[in-house]
């Protein structure tokens, strides 16, 4: 029972961070999504030890366990874009696959170079 209460309170806390994030975005007119500003704010408070991790761990664990469910509704919106099944859609899929390979190469290659330099130093 106490655990359930804890989860509910901590989820409310995460909502507060989300709200603060979107407010910051509005005030400053930033192009970065408010949810991400909330994330970064929470992360900074955790890293600096201002906010003990025990204040959010259960709530965060709960939200993350159901995270995939939360983006189902927006994804179902694909129903309004049959363009994905057209020639343009197939081209976009090909570009996604190519882009993924290029990104894998660029990230992996840079890591090999940077960690080698560290070993030599």
């Amino acid at each position: 029972m106490r655990l359930i209460l804890k989860v509910i309170l901590q989820v409310a806390g995460l909502y507060a961070f989300y709200y603060i994030g979107t407010s910051i975005q509005d005030w400053l007119g930033l192009p970065v999504p408010g949810s991400i500003l909330g994330l970064v704010l929470l992360l900074v408070l955790l890293m600096t030890g201002i906010l003990p991790v025990g204040w959010i761990d259960h709530g965060a664990g709960f939200m993350l366990a159901y995270l995939p469910l939360f983006f189902v509704p927006v994804t179902v919106g694909i129903i309004e874009y049959p363009i994905l099944l057209s020639k343009t859609g197939i081209l976009m899929i090909v570009m996604t696959i190519t882009g993924t390979w290029l990104t894998m190469f660029a990230a992996g290659f840079t890591s090999e170079k940077l960690s080698k330099r560290k070993e030599e130093a």
């Binding site: 949810s35 994330l39 929470l42 992360l43 189902v72």
Partner: peptide, 15 residues
């Protein structure tokens, strides 16, 4: 359900 996505993104700070 969609309205839970924002706070769930904030929760990613934990991992």
């Amino acid at each position: 359900i969609d309205r839970m996505l924002g706070p769930a993104v904030v929760a990613l700070a934990y991992p």
